[in-house]
């Protein structure tokens, strides 16, 4: 980490924004895709979340 300190200091903006936005976009998109495809491909699957605890 300390080896790359200079580079991180120079490029903190693209690193920070790309990391945060990409993580948010990935989570939102994957959850929505999974929810929608579950509805398409399963007729009897429960839509509401419930755990097996």
């Amino acid at each position: 980490m300390m080896t790359h300190f200079g580079r991180i200091a120079d490029e903190w903006l693209p690193i920070t924004f790309a990391l945060l936005l990409s993580t948010v976009i990935t989570m939102v998109a994957t959850a929505l895709i999974m929810q929608q495809t579950s509805r398409w491909f399963t007729k009897s699957a429960p839509a509401q979340g419930h755990s097996d605890e």
Partner: peptide
């Protein structure tokens, strides 16, 4: 985030979290 976008299915939330 899952609350905001209205995803309530724990399966969908789990897949998104793991990915």
């Amino acid at each position: 985030l899952f609350e905001w976008i209205g995803v309530k299915d724990d399966t969908a939330k789990g897949i998104a979290m793991g990915v």
